[in-house]
């Protein structure tokens, strides 16, 4: 290709900034869904590149299951302070208290599935017409099918058989009242791209992405961080292992991997050599072949 061709990270960055600015230009009340994971942290960095020295034209929204890693919450609060942007928190506990969802029971109970209701309620409450998320197409096969501007009906549902055509980089954000659009600026990034970008931009991350000692139990072949949120019984043996997290979600559904990657260079080496995908460590995807597609149809990110 020609010499003018941008380096691939520059190209991915420029595309993501372009998408964020399209959101700003096309919607009345957008929001950036911030999970505390590396992908949404990357989005925040991209938003700084898109809008500084101005303010972000949207608040950050965190759907808090109440079962988060402390490190995630500490990171979130410090980051908000640093960037000086607005944060809105939707609490799954509120949805439980209001009787809109029922806490799961049993050993594998998790609030991961419940957060969809809280998310949809939060969208309705603030009347968000666009929600920016850090999902990537390389994560999962249903995600590989989704548009960059993905329209959700008034029930928050994704209809994979009726997606709008999406040509060139012209994004059609026109919707009817009550509908909203999920927007994925880093759709075309791989896990490795995100890590390379984090290294290049020297972005700080929650410490649990790096190797650390932690009390874990083994559940369904996966290492789960021991915590009061996990229903444990006498069969569960607590061990002290050196681990890190490859994705960060709710404590009850995100598994750790054994790792001695203390530095970002180690992580990049580790992922390059890895034979397991990132979502291999997500209990929520193991349910069935169409687990993600079904969740997305119901309004999940």
């Amino acid at each position: 290709m020609s010499k003018h061709q941008l380096d691939y990270l520059d190209e991915l960055e420029a595309e993501a900034i372009y998408i964020l600015r399209e959101v700003a230009g096309q919607f009345e009340k957008p929001a950036l869904l911030f999970s505390g994971g590396k992908d949404s942290i990357t989005l925040v960095r991209l938003a700084e590149k898109a809008f500084r020295p101005g303010k972000f034209p949207f608040p950050l929204v965190h759907i808090d299951t109440g079962h988060n890693f402390i490190e995630t919450i500490e990171y979130r609060d410090a980051m908000i302070k640093r960037i000086g942007e607005k944060l809105i928190i939707g609490h799954v506990q509120d949805s439980i208290n209001e009787g809109k969802v029922v806490e799961q029971k049993g050993k594998n109970a998790s609030r991961n599935a419940l957060q969809t209701v809280t998310l949809l309620d939060t969208i309705a409450k603030y009347q968000f017409d666009a929600c920016i998320g850090g999902a990537r197409r390389d994560e999962e096969k249903a995600r590989a099918k989704e548009r960059i501007f993905s329209v959700r009906d008034e029930f928050g549902q994704w209809d994979p058989k009726r997606q709008r055509p999406e040509l060139w980089n012209i994004f059609n954000g026109k919707i009817h009242k009550g509908e909203n659009v999920r927007v994925f600026p880093i759709s075309n990034w791989t896990e490795l791209d995100v890590w390379n970008y984090i290294r290049r931009e020297k972005i700080e991350l929650p410490s649990i992405y790096f190797a650390h000692k932690r009390e874990v139990i083994t559940r369904n072949g996966q290492l789960m961080g021991a915590s009061p949120f996990l229903n444990m019984d006498d069969d569960d043996i607590i061990e002290n292992r050196t681990v890190r997290f490859r994705t960060i979600g709710d404590m009850t559904c995100t598994a750790a991997v054994e790792s001695y990657a203390y530095h970002i260079d180690d992580i990049i080496d580790e992922i390059s050599a890895s034979k397991i995908s990132e979502r291999g460590a997500r209990m929520d995807d193991k349910v069935s072949e169409a687990a993600m597609e079904d969740r997305k149809k119901g309004g999940y990110f």
């Binding site: 197409r137 390389d138 999962e140 249903a142 995600r143 590989a144 994979p160 075309n188 072949e289 169409a290």
Partner: peptide, 22 residues
Amino acid sequence: ILTDGLKAEREQGITIDVAYKY
């Protein structure tokens, strides 16, 4: 089925929408 990621696609053995792979 590596790219036919939707349930309807796997059931019918056809591709319905674009899949992006990296």
